[in-house]
Write a protein that binds this DNA or RNA. Structure first.
Lengths: 129, 129, 129, 129
DNA sequence: GTGGTCTAGACCACA
DNA sequence: GTGGTCTAGACCACA
C-alpha cells in the first residue's frame, strides 16, 4: 500500500509534497512501472485534503511523464522515459540548486559541511533503492 | 555606500535576495553594528524595485534582530546576536536539502553529477566573496 | 491588446482553448518575447470564466516553457527554448496525429482530400506570421 | 464472426474505438445491412473491456442510425443512411484539424515534417485496409 | 494589483 | 467508481 503523509502547515504546498512523495516512491522502486496509485478521492480522504489538490498533483506528474492516467480506470506509474531535453533538465537542476544555496547561504555552513551533508544523503538515498 | 544587486527574473523572491545581501554584509563586516542602511525609498530606487519590497525585507530583518529601526531616524545594524539556534539552523538546512533532492530526483542525474555541480558552485561562491 | 474568445459549450475544455490561443499568438508573433499577458483576473472577466480556469491555462503554459510568471508582477511571454526531448516531441506529435486521424476516419475523406486540406491550412498559418 | 481490436492504453476512448471499427466494417461491407452484432457481454468479454463501455458504443451507434436495436433479439446493422451532411462532415473535419494544429504548434516541427508524417501515416492506414 | 494555493461542491466523461 | 473540468470564494505571498 502507498502510505504518505503531508504537512498542511508547512511552507511547501501540499500538492508539491504529494508530488515529492510519489517521485521518491517511484525512484526508490516502492512504486513499480504499471502500479496503480490510490484513487484521487481515496488519497484525498487519507491525507485529509480536498480531492482537487490530489488531482492537481497527479495531473502534473502525468505531464512530467511520471504517471499515466487511464480515464475511468485510474492512475498508474508510467514507463520511465526522458520527457525533457538535456538543456531543460540542466536548467531545472540549476534552478533548484540556486534556490537551495540561497536558502542556506545565511545559515553560515562551510562548503565542506554542505558537501558532507549532501554526500551522506545521497548515499542514503542510493542505498534505499 | 551600501551597494547590492538583485535579479528580478531570478527564482528567489526579491525581498529575500535583499535580506540575504544585508545578512551577508553584516556577517562579513561590510556593515558594522550601528551603521545606517539606505532608506527604503533610496534602496528601492537604486534596485529599481517596488518600495514595498524593500520595506518587507527591512521589516523581516528587524523581526529577526539583524536590523533595528529607530523611529524617525532610520534603520541601523543591530547589536549582533545569534538569531538561529544550532538546531534551528540544522532543521532549515535539512528542509532545504529535502526540497532540493525532491525536485531533482526525477531529472536522472547521478550522485556524482550532483556532487560535482554542487562543488563547482560552492567554489564559485566562495571565490566571489 | 490580446483579444481572444472561447466557446464554453464546446467539446474542448476552456483552459485548453485559452492555451491554444496563446500558443498561436506566440507562434504568429502577435505576442513577442517579454510581452505581458493580461492578468489572470482581467482575462477571466473578459472571457466570463472563473479566474482559476485562466490560472490553470497560464500555469500549464509556464510548465511548457511558453510563458514565464513573475510573482507579484504578472505573466510574460518566455524566451523560446526547447523544453522537451526529441523523443517526447515526436511522441506528442504522434499522439495528436492519432487522435486527429481517428476522429476523421469515419468521415470518409480520401487521403488526398485530407492532405490537401492540411497543406492549405499550413500555408495559411505560415503566411500569417 | 465480427473480429475487432481496441487499445486500452491508447489516446482514444475505448467506446469511440469500438464505434470507429463498427462504422468501418459497415462502410467496407464486412457488416451488411441486417447483420447481427455480438451481444454487449460477448463483445465486452472478447475485448476484455467493461460491458458498460460496449453498451455505450452501441447506444451511440443506434442514436447515429448506424445500428438498430431490436428489443429482446439483439443489435443489428441498420438500413444504410447518410448520417452526416456534407457541411457537418466539413465542420467536424475542420474542428479536428484545428485541435491537431493547436496541439503541435509549439512542438517546432516544420510544415514539411508535418506533411511527411501525415502522408506516411495515411499510406499505412490505407494499406491496412 | 498580481499570481498561487486550497476548499467545497457540482457535473461530466469513461469503464 | 474513476479521473477531469469548472465555479465561487477565500486567503496567502510578492511587488
Amino acid at each position: 500500500m502507498f502510505e504518505i503523509k503531508v504537512s498542511p502547515g508547512g511552507n511547501r504546498p501540499i500538492y508539491l509534497q504529494i508530488m515529492d512523495r510519489v517521485r521518491q516512491a517511484a525512484a526508490r522502486g516502492k512504486l513499480a512501472v504499471g502500479d496503480p496509485l490510490p484513487s484521487v478521492r481515496q488519497l484525498a480522504e487519507q491525507l485529509v485534503v480536498n480531492h482537487n489538490t490530489v488531482a492537481k498533483a497527479y495531473a502534473e506528474l502525468v505531464r512530467d511523464g511520471v504517471l499515466e492516467s487511464q480515464h475511468g480506470r485510474g492512475v498508474f506509474v508510467a514507463k520511465r522515459r526522458q520527457v525533457f531535453s538535456a538543456a531543460e533538465r540542466k536548467r531545472r537542476f540549476d534552478d533548484a540548486l540556486d534556490v537551495f544555496l540561497s536558502e542556506i547561504v545565511s545559515l553560515d555552513f562551510t562548503s565542506d559541511q554542505i558537501q558532507d551533508a549532501m554526500a551522506k544523503r545521497l548515499v542514503k538515498m542510493t542505498a534505499a533503492r
